[in-house]
Nucleic acid binder design. Structure first.
Length: 199
DNA sequence: AGCACGATGCTCT
DNA sequence: GAGCATCGTGCTT
């Protein structure tokens, strides 16, 4: 029995979904085995107005999934070699998503370690590599376990254990979008520098 | 511990 | 043709 987060979870405002996804369990069925990690870092990308969002120039072939119904996986290719996983949010027709930036492995830990050659899973392209997620998963329904990729609710996090700060990697994005505090991270769960994140 | 850099190819202008 | 929601290595401090 699989208990995926329901469609209405993803239909929430993106900032709420990004915050609430911290501590949730990202599950991937790979070669018949269940791999999973607790989500420890997310970022929100919200609409065409957000100049840090892939939808800033309107709907294209690449970002089309962001315009679709909430609860789907938006997986994009970048830097010539990396895949990044997002969960589509808000209402159909409004392009928004939560980027999953880091996980802490909790199931299939040995498989994950092998896939990562012993390296960490703290990074958007690292977790996709760890869980075998690529363009083949773009558009999959995260609310349907048959997709082999879904998210389950986790233990609620105390607000004092949530850090927030500016999004990462938006070097040429103009203000105020570049500095919007739309990055969320779990404090004290994974040892990693906290950068300019704050309470 | 931190910074600089190269890898590598798709997307949109 | 430029830029990219990154990563790993190698060199410096």
């Amino acid at each position: 029995m699989v208990n995926t987060l329901p469609r209405y979870f993803y239909a929430q405002p993106t900032l709420t979904a990004a915050r609430e996804l911290l501590g949730a369990r990202l599950v991937r069925m790979l070669d018949g085995q269940r791999l999973a990690g607790l989500i420890t870092e997310t970022e929100a990308y919200i609409g065409e107005e957000d100049l840090g969002c892939h939808a800033k120039s309107g709907k294209t072939k690449r970002n089309a999934v962001m315009y679709g119904p909430p609860g789907r996986a938006y997986v994009y290719f970048t830097y010539g070699m990396h895949w990044c996983l997002n969960a589509v949010t808000e209402q159909e027709g409004f392009p928004a998503a939560v980027l999953i930036r880091a996980i802490q492995p909790v199931e299939g830990v040995e498989v994950i370690a092998a896939r990562r050659q012993g390296r960490d899973t703290l990074g958007p392209a690292k977790l996709t590599q760890a869980l075998g997620i690529s363009g083949a998963q773009n558009g999959l329904d995260l609310c349907d376990p048959a997709s082999g990729l879904w998210i389950e609710a986790g233990e609620p996090l105390l607000e004092q254990n949530v850090l927030h700060g500016p999004r990462v990697g938006l070097g040429n994005v103009p203000e105020p979008w570049k500095s919007m505090p739309w990055r969320f991270r779990v404090a004290g769960l994974v040892p990693k520098p906290e950068g300019n994140l704050r309470k």
